[in-house]
Design a protein around this nucleic acid. Structure first.
Lengths: 187, 187
DNA sequence: GTCTATACTAAGATAGAC
DNA sequence: GTCTATCTTAGTATAGAC
């Protein structure tokens, strides 16, 4: 494991703070303090706070799919993999103390104020939905055909609903109910 | 229609800004400028920005249920009322240009930083879920019994998922798919 | 109760020494 | 490439005149 570069440390520290306390509530001063660098160094690596935000988005996107891969690579059955996806989101919520989805959070915060953010989030969610759609299609190929797209959309929306609900309620029971419902959708 | 009091105007202006650009991105200076008052007047009515935030939450909670009542008071059939609830959320998204749910937004922004906010949001969402549960129970009383709670949770999560999805995608087609799915749940 | 003036802190960002 | 010092603007909030 090679030494963490300064640039990587900045991204890691900033990402943590953006996620935990929000982008707008996190100041440059706090980032450099926790990363233990001078402000000149930060601006040597990033041209602006918004530049850091882009790096944050890219990092979280990458880690989301890496984390999913790590959690489910051993599972090949599509239905089991879908249930494992739900468990993955549930686990993310627990380990983050119900801090919520990075992308829903940042869109809620920046909204129209930063179009590149919502564009990035849109692509991210599309990839998640495609993942679900692929698994549902695989599942459908095993048994009887069905309205694949609608089932995929159904599962996607249930998971998104469970994520925001568990964020607000600070408890994960919504995911268990989603698993029960999905079991019913894929008999 | 009686004249709008200063206090009410402050709340209205602040609420608009909090919703459209975010709480943390909205400064006191901007609020007093758009409300056309002096800063001394604002602090005569509200002890702090957080005090204004509480007024914002109460206002939006009230208006949400008032708006629902206005949109659906003529409908008595529970299934129709559930579908009208989906249309109501869809309409809110359209008229706000997909600004999202007030409560999901503010929780995303303040998170752990303001426990009274997440507590308020939790209660608000519980009321929404109770509304759905009541309607599903009414519906169940007409026909065959079913797992009422799970169906209510299912519908609730689908709607929450559709709201966040439509916020990110800036389009409302998720609601149409939710309606289709709910039609299937309530045959 | 509404105003102006001001205090104090922090924000994001830049310049220039080393 | 990392540092300190500094600029400018904006943040929330208070004091005190009218």
């Amino acid at each position: 494991m090679k030494k963490e570069k300064v640039r990587e440390r900045i991204i890691r520290v900033a990402s943590d703070l953006f996620y935990k306390q929000g982008y707008n509530s996190t100041g440059i001063n706090q980032i450099i303090a926790e990363a233990d660098i001078a402000i000149g160094s930060l601006y040597n690596h990033f041209s602006s706070k918004n530049d850091l935000l882009q790096a944050y988005l890219i990092k979280e996107e990458l880690e989301w799919f890496e984390g999913f891969e790590n959690s489910t690579s051993k599972i090949s059955d599509p239905k089991e993999k879908l249930l494992a996806l739900i468990d993955y989101r549930k686990k993310l919520q627990k380990t983050s103390k119900f801090a919520g989805c990075h992308f829903i959070k940042i869109v809620s915060e920046t909204g129209e104020g930063n179009p590149s953010v919502s564009g990035f989030a849109k692509l991210h969610k599309e990839k998640q939905k495609d993942l679900i759609k692929t698994l549902v299609t695989e599942y459908g190929a095993q048994g009887q055909p069905a309205d694949t797209d609608l089932i995929a959309e159904n599962i996607f929306l249930l998971i998104e609903g469970a994520v925001v609900t568990s964020t607000i309620n600070k408890q994960n029971d919504s995911f268990d109910q989603v698993k029960k419902i999905v079991q019913g959708l894929l008999p």
